[in-house]
C-alpha cells in the first residue's frame, strides 16, 4: 500500500532528519516506529502526507507518487491518509461531531463547511465511526469537555471518517495513562484489521509497541536500524536503536505485560463486567 524509497529530509539548519529511508507497508499491517527523540519518527510520517516536504526520495501510496503532487492533487491524496496526533489536535471549541466531520472537509464545498450543512452520507459515516469508537453519547459535547482517552477517540474517528487507505499515527498514547494507552492502541489495531488499513504508529513505549503491532521499525539518527517482528526485538536490537542501557528488564516486562494483557482480555470477555484492571508492573 505504502512504498517509501530512498527518502531523505534535511532541515534548513542543516541537520539530516531522515537519511535514505526505504520501507514498504502492505494493506492491513500495523507498523510500530520506535527510536529515540529526534531520530526522525515524526518527520517520517509527516513526509508521507507532506506536512513536511521531503528533500529527496519517493513515496508511493498505491499508484500515486506523493512527492510529485501539488495543490489539488496533494489534497486528494491527503484525503486517503488519516492522521492521529499525540495531543489529539482537536478544535477544542467545536463539538465532537464537528471535529469528526472535519475529516470530510476535503469532500465538501466551502459554504457547506461554513454553515455546517454536510451531506447526509457524511453524517451517516460520522455516526458510524462514532459508534465504532464508543462516543455516540457525546456527539454534541464540546471537545474540551472530554477526557484524554475520549479526545483521542475523537481523533481516531476523525481519521476513520476520511475512509483512508493508511493511518499515520504520531505518539497516540504519550499523553494518556497506561490503561487508556492500551485501550487506544487496541482500538487502533482493531480498526486497522477491520478495514484492512496500513498504519505507521510512532511510539515511545517499546513494551506497548511489542504488545500490539505486527512489525517494528527502529529508527536512529534518521536511518532504519531495525525492521522485524516484535519478538525479534532483543536487547541487542534495543542497544542499536537507543544506545547502551540495561534493556533486559524492558524486554522481560514487555513479555509479562503481554501475558497480563491477554489474561485481562480473557477476564473481561468472560465476566462482561468491570473487573480488577490489569496490573501494570511499572511505568516504563
Amino acid at each position: 500500500m505504502l512504498t517509501i524509497a530512498g527518502l531523505s529530509k534535511r532541515y534548513a539548519k542543516g541537520d539530516k532528519a531522515l537519511d535514505d529511508v526505504s520501507l514498504g507497508v502492505p494493506a492491513g499491517q500495523v507498523v510500530g516506529l520506535i527510536g529515540p527523540s529526534g531520530a526522525g519518527k515524526s518527520t517520517l510520517i509527516r513526509c508521507v502526507n507532506r506536512l513536511v516536504e521531503p528533500t529527496s526520495g519517493s513515496i508511493r501510496l498505491g499508484d500515486t507518487e506523493i512527492t510529485r503532487l501539488g495543490g489539488a492533487g496533494l489534497r486528494r491524496a491527503r484525503r486517503r491518509m488519516g492522521m492521529i496526533f499525540q495531543e489529539y489536535a482537536l478544535v477544542e471549541r467545536l463539538t465532537v461531531m464537528e471535529n469528526v466531520l472535519s475529516g470530510r472537509l476535503g469532500y465538501v464545498g466551502f459554504w457547506r463547511a461554513f454553515l455546517r450543512r454536510f451531506p447526509q452520507a457524511d453524517i451517516d459515516r460520522a455516526f458510524a465511526v462514532l459508534d465504532r469508537v464508543g462516543l455516540l453519547d457525546h456527539v454534541d459535547k464540546r471537545a474540551d469537555q472530554l477526557s484524554g482517552g475520549q479526545r483521542q477517540r475523537v481523533g481516531i474517528a476523525r481519521a476513520l471518517v476520511q475512509e483512508p487507505d493508511i493511518l499515520l499515527v504520531d505518539e497516540p498514547t504519550a499523553s494518556l495513562d497506561p490503561k487508556t494507552s492500551r485501550q487506544i492502541m487496541r482500538l487502533i489495531v482493531e480498526v486497522c484489521a477491520e478495514r484492512q488499513l496500513a498504519a505507521i504508529v510512532n511510539i515511545h513505549d517499546v513494551a506497548l509497541a511489542q504488545m500490539f503491532v505486527q512489525r517494528i521499525i527502529g529508527l536512529r539518527a534518521g536511518r532504519v536500524v531495525f525492521d522485524g517482528p516484535p519478538e525479534a526485538l532483543d536487547t541487542d536490537a534495543l542497544t542499536t536503536i537507543y544506545g547502551e542501557e540495561d534493556w533486559s528488564r524492558t524486554i522481560r516486562e514487555a513479555h509479562d505485560d503481554a501475558a497480563n494483557e491477554a489474561a485481562a482480555q480473557e477476564t473481561v470477555r468472560a465476566l462482561r463486567a468491570q473487573t480488577k484492571p490489569p496490573t501494570v508492573a511499572r511505568a516504563l
Binding site: L51, R75, R78, M83, F85, V91, S102, L105, A113, R158
Partner: peptide, 15 residues
C-alpha cells in the same frame, strides 16, 4: 490536523 485531511484553505479557516 485539518490540513492533513485534504481540506482546502477556505474550509480550513472556517473549521
Amino acid at each position: 490536523a485539518i490540513r492533513a485531511t485534504g481540506t482546502p484553505w477556505p474550509s480550513l479557516i472556517a473549521f
